Amino acid sequence: MDEFIKIRESLLPISWLYGIGVSIRNFLFNIGILKSRSFDIPIISVGNITVGGTGKTPHVEYLIRLLKDNFNIAVLSRGYKRKSKEFILADDDTEMSIIGDEPYQMKQKFPNITVAVDKDRCHGIEQICGNNSTKNTDVILLDDAYQHRYVKAGINILLVDYHRMLSSDKLLPAGRLRESEDGKSRADMVIITKCPSDLKPMEFRVITKAMDLYPYQQLFFTTLIYKDLMPIYEGESKSIESISEDNILLLTGIASPQQILEDMKPYMKNINQMTYQDHHQFTDKDVEDLNNRYSALPSPKIIITTEKDATRIKGLEGLSEEVKRNIYTLPIEVKFMLEQKDTFNENIIGYVRKNSRNSILAKRKDENESRNSNNSGNRTRTISFRNN
Rank of each mutant, 00 (worst) to 15 (best):
63 L>Y: 06
140 I>R: 03
159 L>N: 10
363 K>P: 00
251 L>A: 03
147 Q>R: 00
187 A>P: 07
219 L>F: 01
18 Y>E: 10
130 G>D: 13
327 I>W: 03
261 L>G: 02
123 H>V: 10
330 L>H: 10
171 L>P: 04
290 L>T: 09
262 E>R: 12
130 G>A: 09
83 K>N: 13
122 C>Q: 13
55 G>K: 01
317 E>D: 11
78 R>F: 10
59 H>L: 14
64 I>H: 06
352 V>H: 02
123 H>E: 10
38 S>I: 04
291 N>W: 05
40 D>G: 06
147 Q>E: 12
119 K>G: 15
16 W>G: 02
94 T>L: 05
111 P>M: 08
329 T>M: 15
273 Q>G: 00
126 E>A: 09
90 A>C: 09
305 T>D: 07
354 K>G: 05
200 K>G: 02
39 F>G: 04
375 N>Q: 11
209 K>I: 00
300 P>T: 07
30 N>A: 14
323 V>C: 07
214 Y>H: 12
279 H>N: 09
313 I>R: 03
192 I>T: 09
43 I>G: 02
169 D>E: 15
48 N>L: 06
284 D>E: 14
77 S>I: 11
38 S>F: 05
344 F>R: 00
250 L>V: 08
13 P>Y: 04
328 Y>E: 05
301 K>L: 09
21 G>D: 06
333 E>W: 01
